[in-house]
């Protein structure tokens, strides 16, 4: 697998407040990474650093062998950053006009794909964006981002504001988008919206990367089971229909499906245990 993003010993501050501290990780092409973390964990900041909008004060970040903050045309034509708030889209234009303005700067932009995604979202491509609802504008922005066919797609809370059918369409589009040569990094709080889509999972906490593991490895190490009562020694349990969803160490190599929300909660409650579990493996 080709390494798309290389981050080494990266630290970032807003004023005197350190938001990211000594982060090291590599992200590969052909995967859709899920970036999870509590509010203020530094998810958006990390996306902005990777996208060249912020500069780390220490350490190094390279994307496609380029330094993002230099914002060279060759770098910018290979990435697309979709922020959570889509104030950046020119609302005086329709989705088609917006694409007409900006598509010439993305060499692999696919107009057919763009129109097809707009159709799938049931969006009027000729309607002014300011006349659309927030969710509809977001769909237009997602359509453009995907049709740009860039090597690296950075999405910050993409499912926020989307209705239930659109979330399904979004997952389908993203699954189709993922190729051997592309990498997608999705920051989200809505883990249920993206279940079955994101893999590996990156969890940020306390300015550092707490976990960067594939679902396969997570299910090797952790067990997610529905129990009628809470057994002793579980890392995390939450009441659910028919009993308790329990997360525990997978000592007996049992197979289970990773529940992202439970994984996140278990990780937040037992940071050291989880960290050591994966570190020692």
């Amino acid at each position: 697998m080709k390494r798309m993003i290389q981050i080494h010993d990266l630290s970032f501050k807003y004023g005197n407040k350190e938001v990211l501290s000594n982060i090291t990780m590599n992200l590969e092409a052909g995967k859709i990474y899920g970036l999870l973390g509590e509010n203020g964990a530094g998810k958006t900041t990390l996306l902005k650093i990777i996208g060249g909008l912020q500069r780390p004060y220490r350490g190094k970040c390279t994307v496609c062998d380029e330094i993002p903050f230099q914002r060279t045309p060759s770098f910018l034509s290979r990435i697309y950053y979709l922020p959570e708030e889509i104030d950046y889209i020119q609302t005086d234009y329709s989705a088609l006009q917006f694409a007409d303005l900006n598509a010439p700067f993305y060499p692999k932009f696919d107009w057919d794909k763009f129109k097809k995604i707009l159709e799938e979202f049931d969006l009027d491509a000729n309607k002014k964006l300011r006349k659309l609802s927030h969710g509809q504008s977001k769909k237009a922005a997602i359509s453009f981002a995907v049709a740009a066919n860039v090597d690296l797609l950075l999405l910050d809370e993409p499912s926020n504001g989307l209705d239930i059918p659109s979330k399904t369409i979004f997952r389908k589009i993203m699954a189709e988008y993922c190729l051997e040569t592309t990498c997608t990094l999705i920051s989200t709080h809505q883990v249920r919206d993206l279940e079955n889509l994101i893999d590996p999972i990156i969890i940020l906490d306390n300015r550092a990367v707490l976990m960067n593991e594939s679902l396969e490895r997570i299910s090797e190490k952790l067990c997610f089971l529905l129990e009628s009562s809470v057994p002793s020694g579980v890392l995390y349990a939450e009441p659910t229909l028919g009993g308790y969803l329990c997360v525990s160490e997978n000592r007996n190599q049992r197979e289970s499906r990773v529940n992202l929300e439970a994984l996140f909660n278990a990780t937040m409650q037992h940071k050291t245990v989880i960290h050591n579990l994966f570190k020692n493996a």
């Binding site: 950053y81 708030e85 950046y88 020119q90 900006n102």
Partner: peptide, 18 residues
């Protein structure tokens, strides 16, 4: 240079000089 509204411009694949 708006942190949100200016993103289209800054992320556009052209050089700063251009």
């Amino acid at each position: 240079n708006h942190p949100k509204k200016g993103l289209t411009e800054v992320m556009l694949a052209a050089s700063v000089l251009e």
